[in-house]
Design a binder for these strands. Structure first.
Lengths: 263, 263
DNA sequence: CTATGCGTTCCGGTATATGAAACAAGTGGT
DNA sequence: ACCACTTGTTTCATATACCGGAACGCATAG
């Protein structure tokens, strides 16, 4: 590298305004961003984005001429073209493929195996796995199906469910052989997982497997997948539990962003 | 108006290229349109749209920097931002409100009452009505629910269903009091309606009501609503049946476009 | 090694986008 | 009736944002 850059590492992660030579386009997209929040008038657009009334008018109407915006009594609103594009993007988007690179990073950073899976009724299906660097590996392979309350991945898929559902699925996973106090403890844990949006799971099968999982949300905010890292309990010795959980959660958020989640 | 315009009615309905002063934006949206068809490389974009490699590169990357496009091994694909915009547009879109103006045109052009409704299981619910100019009016009001096989609107909602479903719903609507040959005749009619994407319906209740209905599709191509015109049988005397059907079908297609349907 | 295809960067000239200003049209207040 | 105010629309001279040609980097292939 050249000597002027190694003094201060410009941390700026190459933001939106990095691209030059497309001012008009960028401004138009800024307008779209404003309209996302709800119908908005020309003057308000100009004010918020610091452009002249003229420009706001011209660009908004250009977008309208292409059906990206529509005109309502309350000003501009999102147009039908976006419905079409959204539907097409959805059909072109393969969540597992999108998640793959993130899972690889997760495994290489943590050393654990990482997984992706989705809900199928009362079951969770594993869709993808990336191996870590550890000698002992969780055996689960893509395609495997497990009772949803029995795995960390499954619990992450359940975070938006009500407590009655939690109870039902937990009891089912234990074949009904469970005391009320066990159920209460389990639900209390789920509450905490829900707040943190991360699941910490110790297998109740006594096989010494521990996993950390987090939900992935789509553009509508629905949980459509979950990812996890998993490995033998002893591998967690000496690891910073909070940091591991943070990494899983961050990866899940990144995948969510790729899936169009805005929140 | 001024005297220069009344000679030749410029039929041009103000196309996309009408808007001036947004070349960059328009070209970028052209690129999006190309990507809809599937992943595409920079050079291919430039070739198809007749722009320089440089420009295609710059605009595509500008769109990518805003997540409207993503980069795949096969070139540019639709990006996550479109998932978000699509979901938001969907939540902002009220089909009934969109359909209203079209229903009003339909009624004023034909004189008949017009209706909009959607499917609820084995029933069809009327959501909106616009009165025509006729003395005799169909009594149906918004909120009314009817067996789905019993109305023109309902049949339009069923056009994408299989023949077994048609049979089941027809038999149910007749409380089982129906011969096999009647069923066959009914299904034969439905087949024809499906081809024409227009339903011609004579009430089997013997109340002298006739209706013409057509399905409305959303961005994913699913039938999500239907519209119809209805009135006493005698009002259809002297009307061109094909022309009426055409008007209903065209209105339905226009509403579908507002709902993001591309086909 | 040359050839070919694609992505990327650079740069000068000009088509193009910009904002000020004025106009149009509606709303509400006095 | 008039004015004050708001929002949408059009016009226009100017500055600059955008364009395309050219050249470079980097593959893959013959």
């Amino acid at each position: 590298m050249d000597s002027t850059t190694d003094m201060i590492e410009q941390a700026e992660p190459e933001a939106r305004n990095a691209v030059k030579g497309a001012q008009t386009l960028m401004r138009a997209l800024d307008i779209l961003d404003e309209v996302i929040a709800g119908p908005i008038k020309t003057v308000e657009i100009a004010r918020k984005l610091g452009m002249s009334k003229t420009t706001a008018h011209r660009l908004a109407h250009a977008l309208k001429s292409r059906d990206y915006l529509s005109i309502t009594p309350d000003g501009f609103a999102l147009g039908p073209k976006l419905l079409q594009l959204g539907a097409m993007a959805e059909s072109q988007t393969d969540l597992v493929r999108l998640a793959r690179p993130l899972l690889e990073v997760l495994s290489s950073e943590t050393g654990f195996c990482s997984f992706a899976g989705q809900r199928e009724g009362d079951w969770s299906r594993h869709l993808d796995r990336v191996n870590g660097r550890q000698r002992l590996r969780v055996a689960t392979i893509p395609g495997d199906v497990r009772p949803i309350a029995e795995t960390g991945l499954g619990k992450a898929l359940l975070l938006d469910e009500g407590e009655e559902t939690w109870r039902r699925l937990y009891v089912a996973s234990r074949n009904g052989r469970v005391t009320e106090s066990e159920v209460q403890r389990w639900i209390a844990h789920m509450r905490e997982f829900k707040v943190r949006q991360v699941v910490d799971h110790d297998s109740e099968l006594g096989d010494g497997v521990h996993s950390i999982a987090a939900p992935v949300r789509n553009a509508k905010g629905r949980i459509v997948m979950a990812i996890s890292i998993a490995g033998a309990t002893q591998y967690y010795q000496g690891e910073d539990a909070g940091q591991l959980a943070g990494k899983v959660a961050r990866s899940a958020r990144e995948i969510s962003a790729l899936a169009g989640y805005a929140g």
